[in-house]
Design a protein around this nucleic acid. Sequence first.
DNA 1: CTACTTGTTCTAGTTGACATAGAACAAGTA
DNA 2: TACTTGTTCTATGTCAACTAGAACAAGTAG
Lengths: 118, 118
Amino acid sequence: MLWRIDAASDEPLYAQLVAQAHLAAARGQLAPGDRLPTARELADSLDLNVHTVLKAYQQLRDEGLIELRRGRGAVVTARAAADLSPVEQALAVLVRVAREANLSTETLTVLVKEAMSR
Amino acid sequence: MLWRIDAASDEPLYAQLVAQAHLAAARGQLAPGDRLPTARELADSLDLNVHTVLKAYQQLRDEGLIELRRGRGAVVTARAAADLSPVEQALAVLVRVAREANLSTETLTVLVKEAMSR
DNA sequence: CTACTTGTTCTAGTTGACATAGAACAAGTA
DNA sequence: TACTTGTTCTATGTCAACTAGAACAAGTAG
C-alpha cells in the first residue's frame, strides 16, 4: 500500500497512519494475512520516528486491524476485511450538509467527537 | 443559552464554545438579533480567560454566526438561522456506521478532516 | 544453541498549540 | 465626556506530539 503523510496537517502523524491503513484495508489494498512494513522500515521510508509509527501500529492493533508479534512485525487480521464504504458514503453526506450550514472543519470535528462519545 | 464546557476534553475550549453556539442557534435557543454575553462576562462565568472566549467569538464571526462590534458585544446574525438538523442527522448515520466498522473516534476524526479538505 | 529481527518499554529533550495573564489601544455606546 | 467592549500586543505555563537513544523480551531463522 501507499502511505501519504502530511506533516503540515494539524492531525497527529500517527493518527494519519491509522486512518490510511483503515482506508487501504477497506479498498482491498490490504488483505488479511498481508504484512505491513516493520516499524523501523516504515519510519525510515517516511522519515518519521520509530515511536511514531509504533504508536500508530499499537492503535491499529487496539482497533483490531492488525496483530503485532515481536520478530515478525504487523500482520493484517481477518477482521480487517470490514467494509468501509458505508462510512465513506456517510462522510460524503455529512461534508455536504456541513458546508451548506457554513460549519468550519474545526466545529464539525467537535460535533463528531461529541456524537461519538454518546 | 446554556454553556457547557468540558475542561477535560481533548477538544480546545474555544472550539467547544463555537460548536455549542452553532447547536444553540440550530435549536432556536439563539435567534437573530440576540446578544451573546460580552467576552469578559462569559469568561468570568465559565472561569475561562477572556482571550479564549474572544478566540471563539472571532471564529463564530468568521463562520457568519455573529457580528462583533466594540462597545456593543456579539450579536447573532440573520444567517444564524441556518438549519442544522441535516447535519445532526448525517452525524447520527456516520457514527452508527463508524462504530460498525470498529473505527476509533481519532481515526474517524482524521477521515472527517480529510473529507472536509477536499 | 546462536544470531538476528522486531516489538516493548524506559528516559529525555524539543517543538507548537492552547490557555492564561496583563496591559494599552480603538471604536463604538450612553 | 465617561464607559463599555472588542482588538492587539507581549509574556508565560502547560501539555501532547514528536524525536532520539538505549536496553530489553520474545519471537524467527540458520
